[in-house]
Design a protein around this nucleic acid. Structure first.
Lengths: 366, 366
DNA sequence: GTGAAAGCGCTAACAG
DNA sequence: CTGTTAGCGCTTTCAC
């Protein structure tokens, strides 16, 4: 479809018998222009249905008033909430957001970053994918003088702003709580170790075990991803081991949901047979019959702070000094890990009757 | 922070001793250029870390390869899912999406549309807010020759593309199902009547009642919004009426969730004491102990079709003929409205004992 | 206060 | 195949 001829500054200028510079200034409220002409200009602009052409404006003014955002997912409680806040803060500050979605695909992420750079965004905010390993583009961004803020899924490199949760400390608190509750055999479903949040949450887990002199059992530390399906699969895998732990910590809420579903299908009761906690929460939690106790992360706050840090970098005249903000978490107890309920079970060492029951559960999985 | 001097076409041209036009063409794979020079150009471009400046490109080429999207919310199952699909289709077609969020605020919506127009998006996709009444801007968009596609929350005006659910038919199916199950006293929580989806779903409801000769009782048609809180409040209001219906249809899933919560707090059992269904679903449904039967809407499909329709409008040479796509829905039965279970109760006509129980429930609300 | 000139980085049209 | 010439619509000097 062919666009209608747009009205331009010159159109207004011609109509009023002034130059387009005057119009441009008038429209932007430049002090050069008299109140009177300004008013006249604005009226005509409105009558003509004038819309400034940002492409042209940005081309000459060298900045776009635009911030590029790259996230792995959007139909996801954590990200959509964070993004919504980013939009709100941007709106308050007259910035426009250009949001792109990598779908957890590093190639697509790279594509979007390049695209955003080509659109000449003034700054970049991103949560990297689980696959991202090549950091070259980030250094390129840095060279180009475009402030870059990592949020939640951060990159451990100097030179960039980072805004994250206290992943390690939060996990530590939760796991220590579980230990205090009385559990001595604890497992971790850690997502991916090569991803920052996975690594940090793992450290929080091992910190707690170390502090309380509980030996770490590698077979109880499982990594396969951060999603619900991963949690589901991890839990099944855990069930195959010779001995079951009393408690499982999941690196994300979706993973815990996967565990929840798997346990339900296997007829394993939470928290009676096995107890769980996780990092973060989601909408579904309110509606579970056994709501999962979790490390509550300040989701909106992450987005807000990321924007603030980014705007601050934009303001600083020359080089910006990268900032690193770590937000605190709080333990939120619901229906799990309230008191010790689990009885250590060694499924595969149990009498035949129980074994049978367990495997029936497994079969029902299909 | 000051941006680094960007490398331009001329830089590459200078380095290679050719003109910038050659470079421009080479980079875009224009057939004019020989394979050899093209290769050389690309190499230097890469070495220099060249990024095309889209502002400049778009300014001269008159289109931005960009589609503007305006939605009321983003941290919301329906919209985030739809948006994700929009992003996917855009990506496949080499379009960039500029997403804006109106937060159900008509002023903000208007602001964003203007902004998008100023960014010279090639087309617009939108779901209007619940407040939107002034359609002037949409006609302006039309005049400017920018294809506009409404999705889900559509506007009943000629000249625009619309992609929506079969709201009326879907609701009809559900309500008729409830009637077939045996219910004769049915209520509707309809959201807002002035919003298209509210109006259509209301029609579906009344259609079904009319067909089966069931009188419409205005006090059982409540409107106050589409959110969870609205459903919650509406249900409390319903409870205040002299007589309770056997069945309630909610215009959205969040509303049904509100009803669910309210009922739970009042000690009213679903579906035993009152049965419900709703239009649409959400993540939480899977985890409810009583999963709500619903009219399933093709959420991703809405986004996909909206994009396709929009792209088609973009392709058509001159004027585009507006298309109106209505997507079918399917009835998805879960744990509600399976069979008639409700016993008509007239709470306020019951013996004192029951009355007391009921009001205790209400008190516990705080 | 106002405007003329120059140019942002790129593409389109045409000429060689 | 390659290059020249003209802008796209706006802002930024810098004269007047």
């Amino acid at each position: 479809m062919k666009k209608t001829q747009q009205v331009t500054l010159s159109d207004i200028a011609g109509k009023l018998g002034v130059s387009k510079v005057t119009v441009s200034k008038a429209l932007r409220g430049h002090p050069d222009i008299s109140r009177e002409t300004a008013k006249k200009v604005k009226k005509i602009a409105k009558d003509l249905g004038y819309f400034p052409n940002y492409m042209a404006r940005n081309l000459s003014s060298k900045h776009s008033n635009t911030i590029g955002v790259v996230v792995p997912k959007i139909a996801h409680y954590f990200f959509s909430t964070m993004i919504e806040t980013i939009y709100d803060v941007a709106f308050e500050n007259n910035y426009e957001i250009i949001l792109t979605v990598s779908q957890e695909d590093a190639k697509r992420e790279l594509y979007h970053i390049k695209s955003l750079l080509s659109m000449r965004v003034d700054a970049l905010i991103m949560s990297i994918t689980q696959q991202t390993t090549d950091l070259a583009i980030f250094h390129k961004v840095q060279e180009m003088g475009v402030p870059l803020t990592f949020v939640d899924r951060i990159v451990d490199e100097p030179g960039f702003n980072t805004v994250s949760n206290d992943d390690r400390g939060g996990t530590f608190k939760a796991v220590e709580h579980a230990i205090n509750v009385g559990y001595t055999t604890l497992a971790l479903l850690g997502g991916y170790e090569h991803v920052n949040i996975g690594r940090q949450r793992t450290l929080g887990f091992t910190d707690a075990l170390a502090k309380h002199g509980i030996p770490i059992r590698p077979e109880w530390m499982i990594y396969s991803g951060f999603g619900e399906e991963d949690g589901y699969r991890d839990f099944l895998k855990l069930c195959e081991s010779d001995e079951m732990p009393e408690f499982v910590f999941c690196a994300t809420f979706p993973m815990a949901l996967g565990v929840y579903r798997a346990a339900e299908e296997l007829g394993i009761r939470i928290p009676d047979d096995i107890d769980i906690m996780c990092f973060g929460s989601g909408i579904a939690n309110r509606f579970l019959s056994t709501r999962i106790s979790c490390v509550e992360q300040p989701v909106s706050e992450l987005g807000k702070v990321a924007m603030e840090v980014t705007l601050a970098s934009l303001q600083s005249a020359e080089e910006y000094t990268p900032r690193h903000v770590v937000l605190g978490t709080t333990l939120k107890l619901a229906d799990t890990c309230i008191r010790k309920v689990a009885v250590p079970k060694k499924i595969y060492y149990q009498p035949a009757a129980s074994l049978e029951a367990a495997s029936t559960g497994i079969d029902s999985l299909d």
